[in-house]
Design a protein around this nucleic acid. Structure first.
Length: 477
RNA sequence: GCUCCCUUCGUCUAGCGGUCUAGGACGCGGCCCUCUCAAGGCUGAAACACGGGUUCGAUUCCCGUAGGGAGCGCCA
């Protein structure tokens, strides 16, 4: 009878939800879903100095945006400190832990001396076997685990394999601080146990902690959960992921115009694979995800691939959904508010009509919004530098010459406009491109845009003609 | 310094002793399509870190070397 899978995501609220945390959460979520289990969320806020409500909000927002849902109530670790203390006392009573009266200064000196002499910086166990009567008065002790000094501690990790530590290389670490609050090491074990966690999937940076935590489980005679330590994500140059590289909050990725589905797809393929498959719907990820396919080497973060994936998902998304995404994104963008104000029903329907041509060309939502700028620009249309170079005297002359043909198109349609322009080009003895580029420039102010006949259609006859007249040099009317 | 981990194209990866003249994807080059830019199609360049073993046979197993990473707090 196999037990139900229970995973957890346990971030410390000392900053935003970064990309590595997002992936860890995704893996936990996928694993739980795959095996019909649950994923719990625990906020590790035992560091009162650095934990903030803003960080908690950012983490929850980030997970929500990524589409990762957790089960049950969020557990706040700090609220469980009485229980943590209780377990520390229990260990003390059982002789599995002891009080250490060494002061922080004393320990610093110990480590410095160890370093000078080329010895290990581990705690030397100076209070391990001392008689309690020797305790100095007026000093609040910490409680340390009485860890085994011989033998070995084994972590049978699902990703890293079976790894063995010689116990002499592990020390008597602190369980309870002198102020009576638990350390991370103790709190994690107690909470994971009490919450019924069966699988711990977390970053590789916790791998060494895995051995220490195993010792706590053993001292308590509790069952050690299955562990899976996933490799960290590195920057493009292979070094630690820094802010400059992409160690941004997931909210930053939203602001850059990435879609949650693209983000999930990119993240799931960072360190995990399923044969040659690159594109995964959420259902496919859940169906295929498992621990053995997680690689053991760190992956570098690559914006180019993320962009490519994002472009794919943008193209896959229905026009109306894209419009909704854009409207949700606007408040997160600089200058988004003014743009939002311009979204009248008329502009929205224009945007919707132009969307097929727009989404084909955009790698991010921000690019999409930018390329849609001509739809709500005011006349006369401002030309960018490349557009100015196109707008030569000949170009103006061509626009002026084709205008009457365009004005004669009735009813206004892409097909009608196309026929008029093609016929004109033939008559004038110029290639279609020679007339299309000036038209595009006059209509959009840019040298790239969706197909010119689509632009004409979306803008409508009156607006198109007016914009063309602006550039042809003829004042309207 | 000590402990632990990692090493296939520039990047993400497939590969779990012979099927590898090493596959896919992103990126890059070329061609096609074409009103621009994309998208799409075709195509090209591009990798098993190095040195020893084990084996009839190593990208795959073992040991070194080099390089990279993580940890060594009364932080998490």
């Amino acid at each position: 009878m196999s037990e139900t899978v229970v995973t957890r995501f346990a971030p410390s609220p000392t900053g935003f939800l970064h990309i590595g945390g997002g992936r860890t959460a995704l893996f936990n979520w996928l694993y739980a879903r795959r095996f019909g289990g649950k994923m719990l969320l625990r906020i590790e806020d035992t560091d009162r100095e650095r934990s903030t409500q803003a960080a908690i909000d950012a983490i929850i927002d980030g997970l929500t945006w990524l589409g990762i849902e957790w089960d049950g109530d969020t557990v706040y670790q700090f609220s469980r400190s009485a229980r943590h203390r209780e377990v520390a006392e229990q260990l003390l009573a059982a002789g599995k832990a002891y009080r250490c009266y060494a002061s922080p200064q004393e320990l610093t000196e110990m480590r410095e001396a160890a370093r000078r002499e080329g010895r290990s910086k581990l705690y030397d166990g100076r209070w391990r076997d001392r008689d309690p009567s020797e305790a100095p008065t007026g000093v609040q002790p910490v409680i340390r685990l009485k860890a085994p000094q011989t033998g070995e501690t084994i972590v049978d990790d699902q990703v890293q394999g079976r790894v063995t530590w010689q116990n002499e290389n592990l020390d008597d670490f602190v369980l309870l601080r002198s102020d009576g609050t638990p350390t991370y090491m103790l709190a994690v074990v107690v909470d994971d146990h009490d919450m019924g966690i069966t699988h711990i999937i977390r970053g590789d940076d916790h791998f060494n902690n895995g051995a220490r935590q195993t010792q706590i489980y053993q001292a308590l005679d509790w069952k050690v959960p299955v562990m899976a330590h996933i490799p960290l994500i590195h920057g493009p140059d292979g070094s630690k992921l820094s802010k400059r590289h992409g160690a941004l909050g997931v909210d930053a990725y939203r602001a850059m115009g990435y879609l949650p589905a693209a983000m999930r797809n990119y993240l799931v393929r960072l360190g995990w694979s399923h044969g040659d498959q690159e594109i995964f719907s959420t259902e496919e990820m859940i169906a295929a995800f498992d621990l053995p396919q997680i690689g053991r080497s760190p992956a570098r973060f690559d914006f180019a691939k993320l962009e490519s994936l994002n472009g794919h998902y943008i193209r896959q998304t229905a026009e109306a959904d894209l419009l909704a995404e854009i409207e949700q994104l606007l408040p997160h963008l600089a200058g988004g508010a003014e743009l939002k104000a311009k979204l009248s029903p008329g502009v929205r329907s224009r945007l919707l009509a132009a969307m097929p041509g727009l989404k084909e060309r955009a790698k991010t939502l921000v690019e999409l919004i930018d390329s849609a700028g001509f739809l709500f620009a005011d006349r006369p249309i401002a030309l960018d530098d490349k557009a100015k170079a196109v707008m030569t005297d000949e170009a103006r002359a061509l626009i002026k010459a084709v205008l009457p043909d365009l004005e004669a198109v009735e009813p206004w349609s892409a097909a009608g406009a196309e026929q008029a322009v093609r016929t004109f080009a033939e008559r004038a003895g110029v290639k279609l491109g020679a007339i299309a580029q000036p038209l595009r420039t006059a209509l959009t102010g840019r040298v790239t845009s969706p197909g010119i006949f689509d632009v004409l259609t979306v803008l409508g006859k009156a607006e198109s003609v007016a914009r063309l007249r602006d550039q042809a040099g003829n004042p309207a009317g």
